[in-house]
Write a protein that binds this DNA or RNA. Structure first.
Lengths: 195, 195, 195, 195
DNA sequence: GATGAATGAGCTTTCATTCAT
DNA sequence: AATGAATGAAAGCTCATTCAT
């Protein structure tokens, strides 16, 4: 119905794709407009600056990743199995929709100056962080995970997975990402589990 | 005597400082020149392009970080203690000389297009990676660490620590970095140790 | 209606004027933009580099000069008269629209590095060369001109006329260019005619 | 004895070589200094600016070319033969020492702004022009050449030969320069001879 | 005379943003 | 809403020239 919503999302998708592959500064607004067959001027009717567009994208990707984690959270299963599912999910995303994770790594994590105003703390990625927090607290509640500072656990999860996707992108891994799921899930479980 | 050596290093330091705080694209060559009281033209006598400067910096920082790890490798002690030392060292660096680690996270990891030619694979950070490889292999050799793919372990180490320093930079951690050393070192040890 | 066509041509004219009087390297893009009341950035919307602009100009001037020669080719008259007409035409151009001939002499002929890619051989001046080739071959066909290598004749024609315009520009000629038309046309005719 | 003379000439030679192949603006002073193993600063002890160097070179080349023509002038023979010798000499120079003729065509003829002050008229090439003037006047005096304005004849000679060398450089000639000597000498003789 | 590090103005080119249509 | 020509500040980089040694 509301055409603006449809068009805004198309802009987010196109910009996400370009930012995540070329980087924030190497992508121009005309690039984005051309990639989706829209005029530069009209793009500015939807997002009033390149920075605002970048901030909307990180929320957009965070929502999508968060929704995926939520699906795991809502499934049955013990924490060990859920860790494996999250790792598998993350790597699956890195293969099938790499733009979201790459945006995280290459744009959000890297160009702090862009996100300085409006994305303080983890504000713009809260959808994603919240789901991992829920996962972690349930794991602690049911006694499977050691009770520790959430960010000690979150940093492990995200740093490990993000770092690994980076290594994969660098071409230093011998095998496909999926091959490492079990190893990594085990490492994470060992790190976080109740002794 | 040889002034060029001294000056090159001063440029590396000044550029490293600016790149690591403002990002690669938000730092201009005139910024760097001004920061060290040098003319733009003369800076180009030492580094013939901004990209080349960026590549030299990553080698420079990798060497410095690698040398620190080597000192731990050469000390006595079991692997569990060494993990703790490496984590402490990393966080100490993140506090006292954050430019090296931030450059890693914000410039090297993020702006892949800059390092595409000449830093393939882990070429420009090999000094650092090599030391961690030595650490890991010694841990495996003496039976303390599980024998697994090196990059599975490396990704854990570096992703975890890097991610944590990022979280710290975002101001989401309640306490000082040093406070988390034990937790994180334990998590890593649990993840990697021989069962 | 189509403003782009009009504007492109205006740029060609303005740049041609400046390049031909000041030379390629002594003319800057801001000079050209200012001369026509246009912004630097917008000029790049029409010609994506200074070199490309220079190459388009030589084609543009070659077309204009070629069209003039064609008019002579299409007129009635014997070859001797046509030679005189071409010399007169050339000198008239050198007086009324000197930019075309000066561009030829000062930019195209001189700055070979600029035209290296894309103007190999006589590619960018073919409109002009072709008309002279037609003139020459018709002269041979009707028995008035000696049958010799085309470029031996072309070099005479163009070198002579170009050199003479250069001398005129240097201020070493005592009289107006037009004064020399008969002498020069006769010299050329004598040089090329069938014995 | 006087070392300055020796060094000055070496600079002229090195600069001539570079200017004539790369053009005036594409050749830098450091290029010249490096080409002859001299320091930039010292080069400025001999020639106080790039423009002055360029002006000295055109005199230098003009002297050398003039001396060659003088040798022909001083030989025995009729004018027709001398024309042939001059053409042959010019093409021989274009093959064996192309720097002089190319400097003429690519630097002197092209970058008028450089020679504006100090080389007015044909001041800096007078050695060369003078010899051709002697040749021409002797040809007239002995009745072989038509008495016409000197520059009408000079323009023919120089424009023709220069234009032909240019065409040769462009690679549009099918055969070696020497192949065209007879044709061209005949053309010139026909153009200038007494009817 | 000889060196070459140092200067800084000025070049070409880019691109976020605006605005008349 | 939609267009894309237009703007102009600012970037990376060059190079003639100087000057302390």
């Amino acid at each position: 119905m509301d055409k603006r919503i449809g068009k805004s999302e198309k802009i987010l998708d196109a910009a996400l794709m370009l930012f995540s592959t070329r980087g924030f500064y190497a992508t121009t607004i005309p690039d984005i407009a051309k990639a989706m067959g829209m005029s530069v001027g009209n793009l500015y009717n939807y997002f009033s600056s390149k920075e605002i567009l970048a901030k909307e994208i990180i929320k957009y990707s965070s929502d999508i990743l968060g929704a995926e984690i939520r699906r795991v959270n809502e499934e049955e299963g013990n924490t060990k199995e859920k860790i494996r599912k999250i790792v598998a999910l993350y790597f699956e995303m890195a293969s099938s929709k790499p733009q979201h994770i790459n945006y995280f790594l290459r744009v959000y994590l890297a160009n702090r100056e862009v996100f300085k105003d409006g994305c303080e703390g983890m504000l713009c990625v809260s959808a994603f962080v919240t789901e991992l927090m829920i996962f972690f607290e349930e794991g602690v509640a049911c006694g499977e995970l050691r009770n520790q500072d959430f960010f000690s656990a979150f940093g492990l999860f995200m740093g490990y997975l993000g770092g690994f996707v980076f290594l994969n992108g660098e071409g230093v891994l011998e095998k496909d990402l999926n091959h490492y799921v079990d190893d990594i899930a085990l490492n994470i479980y060992n790190a976080l589990r109740h002794p």
